[in-house]
Design a protein around this nucleic acid. Structure first.
Lengths: 129, 129
DNA sequence: CATAGTATTGAGAATGATTATCATTCTCAT
DNA sequence: ATGAGAATGATAATCATTCTCAATACTATG
């Protein structure tokens, strides 16, 4: 049978799809509960996994233990995480493509994906310190 | 007081320092136990954290939940993980420096570190599939 | 329309990696 | 040797995530 877009999954998808935030499972459950449509935590995890597999959202793994999700369809980018305030900034650089090209040419590997997370202090936290 | 290089930590350090593997806590405990010098798992974790803080080993966070450690002093590199066989290959590319430079110039951030993990199929797993 | 068969849900238990607790032991500088 | 700060090991606790399982919800047939 096919994967279904249930009310629960639709709620998750709307939440992520209409924002530029990087959500973790807990945050989603919390916000949905506040909005009156609380759903079980297992369902949140299953929904996120299903939506990611369908390509409707994108999962990223930052440095702390939790997986975050952002809406799909944005152009490719990586993430800068401020270790002081926790803010997440997106960035991208054309040179990255060269790196992948070089890597696969050198090693013969097929590249399926990557995680590029840079961390440090953002501009405002740098000044504050 | 100062941080001490206890026999346990020395054992961990030797194990990591004399190899080019990427160890996780469990693997270290397992191998040390086999070598007849088994140490408590909490001590393994504490030892790894202490050695990393001292700069004697380097910790990296790959895609699966567990943190790996490699010996310090190698020149900078990133990691390619084959999702089929689990092998870890190191790579590096000069363009990466440009990316950091550009990022900090654009955003005003100070960069303290990064994780760049590329995953896919290595050459042999590609052929096998 | 009935209904079998698969998906999904929610609650709670279970997992796996890591961290905290705590009493005990070690080590160093006095 | 003594006292204070480190380190240890066993075990409990934590945290994110996954599994289990009984109860529902859909959906594609017959």
């Amino acid at each position: 049978m096919k994967k279904r877009l249930t009310p629960q999954r639709e709620a998750i998808l709307k939440l992520i799809g209409n924002s530029d935030q990087h959500w973790d499972a807990e945050g989603i459950a919390h916000v949905l509960a506040k909005m009156g449509c609380s759903i079980g935590q297992a369902t949140v995890y299953r929904g996120l996994a299903a939506l990611e597999k369908e390509g409707l959202i994108r999962g990223i793994q930052l440095v702390d233990g939790k997986k975050r999700y952002e809406r799909a369809g944005k152009q490719h980018h990586d993430h800068f995480v401020c270790t002081a305030c926790g803010s997440i900034t997106e960035f991208s650089h054309p040179a990255e493509a060269q790196i992948f090209e070089h890597l696969s040419r050198e090693t013969g590997a097929v590249i399926h994906g990557h995680e590029f997370v840079v961390f440090g202090f953002c501009a405002s936290c740098r000044e504050a310190s």
